[in-house]
Design a protein around this nucleic acid. Sequence first.
DNA 1: ACCTTGACCACAA
DNA 2: CTTGTGGCCAAGG
Length: 110
Amino acid sequence: MAESTPSRAEFAENVLEIVQAIPPGRVMTYDDIAAVLGSRASRMVGQVMSRSGGDLPWWRVIRAGGHPPLCHDAEALEHYEAEGTPLLPSAVEAGYRIDYRTSRWTPPFD
DNA sequence: ACCTTGACCACAA
DNA sequence: CTTGTGGCCAAGG
């Protein structure tokens, strides 16, 4: 039976749903989002967001280890401070790092 | 069918 | 900390 292509557009919509569902002050990693969707396509998550418009809180999506998006770290920093996202000092990257330990969030399954 | 690119991840030196 | 290499999935040329 064949759902034919079991993803593609659906994958993209799922990504957007999750990202928009992330509450302020929380963050998710590309890998976590991909994992929730049952895929390891962490790259696709970013790819989809890059294509998406500005209605998407992309700054709440970070890389593994708590590093901000390499391309928009400066823009993201403004949002983190505005949302009150717990940050930690860092000697590298953009001079800061996400407190991924406490701010990581996962979508509820209930 | 082949190769390149991409808002990535992990490990090793 | 840095750099390099391999793996991952998907879209486009």
